[in-house]
């Protein structure tokens, strides 16, 4: 379809609405989509904090202690609190969308979406428990 059709009596003017810049604020489902995409900022943000913690770990006990002090500041606690909400939202949306990408089949039958998502959530919980155990047992 050519982008600039000629308008003639036999080809009258079309009306074409354009998307406003903040199109995603018009509808809740779209705002939810943008929120989902923005979780990536918190994912990367926490990965960076974690990397800094590892760097402090490599620099020696004093540096590490100083870093742990920093983590105790109210600012850090509140930032972590907000980030937690977003990274959990990331996990939930990620697992719920996994069945879109996976078409597993047992015999002739498609594994239902709910089962795939459910398995993801089970894996999430068990991995969290295992990781907590490994980190804290020392």
């Amino acid at each position: 379809m050519s982008a600039n059709p000629q308008h003639t009596p036999y080809h009258p003017r079309w009306y074409r609405a354009s998307m406003p810049i903040f199109w995603w604020m018009r509808r809740w489902i779209h705002a939810r989509f943008i929120l989902r995409e923005l979780t990536s900022i918190f994912v990367a943000g926490y990965a960076l904090v974690y990397l800094l913690q590892l760097r402090a770990l490599g620099l020696g006990p004093e540096a590490y202690a100083r870093f742990l002090d920093l983590l105790r500041s109210p600012l850090s606690i509140s930032l972590h609190g907000v980030s937690l909400v977003f990274v959990i939202y990331h996990s939930i949306t990620w697992f719920n969308l996994a069945p879109r990408a996976l078409a597993l089949r047992i015999g002739d039958r498609r594994v239902p979406d709910k089962v795939i998502a459910g398995l993801n959530f089970v894996a999430w919980i068990s991995i969290s428990a295992a990781l907590a155990w490994v980190t804290l047992k020392g």
């Binding site: 489902i29 779209h30 989509f33 995409e37 969308l97 069945p99 879109r100 990408a101 078409a103």
Partner: peptide, 22 residues
């Protein structure tokens, strides 16, 4: 970018989002 709305509105459960992801 997998907004996913196509599959929500589809009256025939075609699930185009899944087609694209796969």
């Amino acid at each position: 970018t997998l907004v996913g709305e196509c599959s929500v509105v589809c009256p025939k459960d075609v699930d185009p989002a899944a087609a694209i992801q796969r």
